[in-house]
Each structure stands twice: as C-alpha cells, then as structure tokens.
C-alpha cells in the first residue's frame, strides 16, 4: 500500500473571506496576495495537464486574469483554491479542444514533442524492437508517465493530477469538476487503470505475460 496523499478539506475561512472582500473592492494588493498564494499550485496543475512549460505559464496567467474579472460572479461557496482549479481545468479543456481542431490534419507521429525537462522524446509509438524486459530508469519512467498522462482524456487527467499530484481530496475534486463523488472515484480508477495499461509494456515488455 502506498502512503495516502495528505487529504486537505479546504473551506473558505474568515481570513480568506476578508481577502476575497478586499479583492472585490478592487484592492490590488489583496489580489496580489491571492496570486502569490496559489500561482505555483495552479502552475503545477496546468503543467501536468498540458505538458508544456511555456503554455503552462501563459495559461496560469489566463487563470488569474479570468479570476480577476470574475471576482463578482464567484459565490464563495468553495475555497479560492478550488475555484482557481476549476478555472484552470476549464481553460485546459478549452485549449485541448482548440488544439485538437488545429492539429487534426497536421500532426505527424514522427514529429518530436518537448517535455518539461527539455528532453526530446518521440510520440507514443511502442518500439517493438526494444528489449522487452528492460528496466526503466527513474527519468525514463517519468517520461513514460507523462506520455501516458497525455494519452488520457482531459477529464481523466484532471482527476488523477488533482488527486495524485496536487493532493486534493475526493470532495474538493468533486467541487472543482462539478460532478458527484462517485464519478470522481470512478474516474480516478479509470485514469489509474489507463496509466497502468500504458506503463505495462514498458515495465514487463511488449506482449510479455506478467509474473505473479
């Protein structure tokens, strides 16, 4: 059993309510404090969602610009963090839709993509000539995990990143995504199962039967 992710139940406390009230009164210092508190969390989430450092920075900017404009429509039912994650998720999904439309005719399987550690890696075509029983080094494993993440749908990726990377609770994820708790659990299972399915060929070799 792996150690559980620290579960945090984030509700808006009095200090956060006061901060929000100051933001609504166009207090830029208060908004700067919000940005300072959450910028890296939001960036880390987006970086795992889009797997592109430059886009992650730009999208994180967009999240806070949108938050600034939408302060009036934020009801304060969820914590600021939950709200920011919700905006980030929507922006990531919008970006994915745009890119799918734009790249439908132009994407090449041989075209290299850059991961966030500046490693040139090929697209996800299994190399059947490789040693099927090789053990992956940690860095290579992370690359495989990133690729596997990239193959998940945005909805599955959002759940697994929010839970396993960002450390949110099921309840918070349900708030972020606006879906029932059962859906969160089922998506988390599906995401992890997909991840495992993509990793198995690299862990056990192409077509090899796993050992007990």
């Amino acid at each position: 059993m792996i150690p559980p992710v620290p579960q945090k139940v984030l509700v808006m406390d009095d200090a956060e309510q006061a901060l929000l009230a100051r933001c609504r009164a166009n207090d830029l210092l208060a908004f700067e404090e919000v940005v300072h508190r959450y910028k890296n969390k939001v960036h880390n989430y987006i970086a795992r969602m889009v797997n592109d450092a430059d886009d992650a920075e730009d999208l994180t900017q967009d999240v806070f610009v949108k938050a600034f404009i939408s302060l009036g429509s934020f009801r304060g039912e969820a914590s600021l963090q939950t709200w920011l994650y919700r905006i980030a998720t929507n922006l990531c999904i919008d970006r994915a839709r745009r890119r799918k439309r734009q790249r439908w005719d132009t994407m090449s399987l041989d075209e290299p993509v850059r991961d966030d550690e500046d490693d040139e890696i090929g697209r996800d075509v299994p190399d059947v000539e490789a040693d099927p029983y090789r053990h992956l080094e940690r860095k290579e494993l992370r690359q495989q995990v990133r690729r596997a993440l990239g193959r998940l749908s945005e909805k599955l990726r959002a759940v697994i990143v929010l839970y396993d990377v960002q450390g949110l609770s099921y309840e918070e994820i349900a708030q972020v995504l606006g879906c029932p708790l059962g859906t969160v659990k089922s998506r988390l299972f599906n995401a992890r199962a997909e991840l495992a399915k993509h990793l198995k060929p690299y862990l056990y070799g192409e077509g090899a039967e796993p050992h007990a």
């Binding site: 880390n44 966030d116 940690r138 992370r142 991840l195």
Partner: peptide, 18 residues
C-alpha cells in the same frame, strides 16, 4: 504493480514554479 509505479512516479514529479 503498474498502477503503483505510475502513482508513485506522479507523486515524485518535481513541483513546477512560475
């Protein structure tokens, strides 16, 4: 095992910063 390896790798990824 594959699931555990994947989850552990996710949790060990370095945190990015703006």
């Amino acid at each position: 095992r594959a699931m555990r390896v994947g989850v552990e790798a996710l949790r060990s990824m370095r945190t990015t910063e703006v």
